[in-house]
C-alpha cells in the first residue's frame, strides 16, 4: 500500500527521486510541483468529502476509489515521506480547526502564543 518507510515509488515521470523515494534535490521548483499535486489531490478529497486518506484502511480505500489518479500524481511529484506527512497534516489541521470552533462556540477564547516557550533545561 505504500507507507512502509520506503519502497513504493519507482514511478516514471514526476520529479527525480532516490531509490528510497526521497527527492534527489528538494529545490524550489520541485517543492512547487509537489505542493501543486498535493493541492489537486486535496481538492479532489474535498469534493468527495473525504478527510482521512492515510490513517485508516477505510480512508485509504475511499480515497483510492474517488481520487486514485490524483493520488498517483501526488506520489509521483513528492517524496513519499512528504505525501504521508501532508496527508496526516490534513487530518490534524481539520481537527485543530474543529477544536478551535468548538471552544469558540462555548464562549472560550484562543489566546495567541505571545512568547515562545523554550526548553531551557539540558536534554
Amino acid at each position: 500500500m505504500g507507507w512502509l518507510p520506503w519502497g513504493s515509488s519507482e514511478q516514471e515521470g514526476g520529479v527525480k527521486k532516490t531509490s528510497g523515494g526521497a527527492f534527489e534535490s528538494p529545490s524550489r521548483t520541485n517543492r512547487a510541483k509537489c505542493y501543486e499535486a498535493r493541492d489537486a489531490f486535496f481538492e479532489c478529497l474535498d469534493r468527495n468529502k473525504i478527510l482521512d486518506s492515510v490513517n485508516s484502511r477505510a480512508g485509504v480505500a475511499a480515497s483510492k476509489a474517488a481520487c486514485g489518479p490524483a493520488d498517483q500524481e501526488f506520489e509521483k511529484n513528492c517524496a513519499h515521506s512528504w505525501v504521508e506527512y501532508f496527508k496526516k497534516q490534513r487530518v490534524v489541521n481539520y481537527q485543530k480547526e474543529q477544536t478551535i470552533k468548538r471552544i469558540e462556540a462555548q464562549g472560550g477564547e484562543i489566546a495567541p502564543i505571545e512568547a515562545p516557550q523554550l526548553p531551557l533545561r539540558p536534554q
Binding site: 515521506s81 512528504w82 526548553p119 531551557l120
Partner: peptide
C-alpha cells in the same frame, strides 16, 4: 536545546523526515 530526531544511521537514498 534543540530537539531533533534524525535516525543516527540511514541507508543511502532512504526517505525520512
Amino acid at each position: 536545546r534543540v530537539y531533533f530526531s534524525t535516525p543516527p544511521s540511514v541507508k543511502p537514498g532512504q526517505d525520512y523526515l
